[in-house]
């Protein structure tokens, strides 16, 4: 009947969150008898009757509809195999790669070669986590020169901010082009010094993502760093 833990508190696996049937377990929680128990390390969020945990860590799990940054790892008969910062690799099929006609037996490295980074959408994920990518949507493209950084994919929503507010702030302040993938890979292009400031501020976001008042702090941080 009662809540046993406060909203927005840090919970660990096995911690009892609520008792009775008034609350419902969702992401990262489970029901055991009349108790709701945490199954992951994270921040507890209570939305009405729903209890969920926003995890602090964990590797990227591909989801349909995600926009990610992938690295071309291998070339197969019918496409490109890409590294997506997950336990699984993804396949970019010839059909989904380009609006151009690609003839049979063409040299695929002319389009994407080993080590190229692309912004791609996930079209399909099977139960065995076989992942299909596409480049046929607005904004999906091959990335040029730039700096690649990896962060924890669970921190990505904070880096992006509400409707992209956080990443836009960094873009404007540093005058960098920034592309963020939901899998935790970020691409940054700008002048060398500003690139470094962008990297530093993103690292700061990812380290302090769970502490309130983040936007203000990042704003101050950017001002300070850019004045140097």
């Amino acid at each position: 009947m009662a809540l046993l833990t406060k909203d927005k508190s840090v919970v660990v696996p096995g911690e009892e969150l609520a008792s009775g049937m008034d609350y419902l377990p969702t992401n990262g929680t489970y029901r055991d008898g009349d108790k709701i128990v945490a199954a992951r390390l994270g921040l507890l969020h209570i939305e009405g009757r729903l209890l969920k945990i926003i995890p602090f860590s964990g590797k990227y799990l591909p989801k349909r509809g995600d926009v990610i940054i992938a690295k071309v790892e291998d070339i197969t008969l019918n496409g490109w195999r890409c590294y997506i910062n997950s336990a699984y690799s993804a396949l970019l099929n010839l059909r989904d790669a380009s609006s151009e006609f690609i003839a049979k037996g063409a040299d695929l490295t002319r389009y994407f070669t080993f080590g190229d980074y692309i912004v791609a959408g996930i079209t399909n994920v099977t139960s065995q986590n076989i992942v299909d990518l596409t480049l046929k949507a607005p904004g999906l493209k091959k990335l040029g020169e730039g700096r690649i950084m990896h962060i924890d994919p669970n921190k990505m929503p904070r880096v992006i901010g509400k409707a992209g507010s956080m990443v836009n702030m960094i873009k404007e302040a540093t005058d960098c082009r920034i592309s963020v993938g939901q899998n935790g890979i970020i691409w940054i292009q700008g002048s060398p010094n500003n690139e470094l400031v962008a990297v530093k501020s993103i690292e700061k976001i990812s380290a302090e993502s769970h502490v309130p008042g983040l936007t203000e702090r990042i704003k101050k941080f950017l001002d300070k760093e850019l004045k140097k």
Partner: peptide, 11 residues
């Protein structure tokens, strides 16, 4: 394992 973010029934 909990730190790595895995789903666990308990520690």
């Amino acid at each position: 394992l909990a730190d790595a973010g895995f789903a666990m029934k308990d520690l």
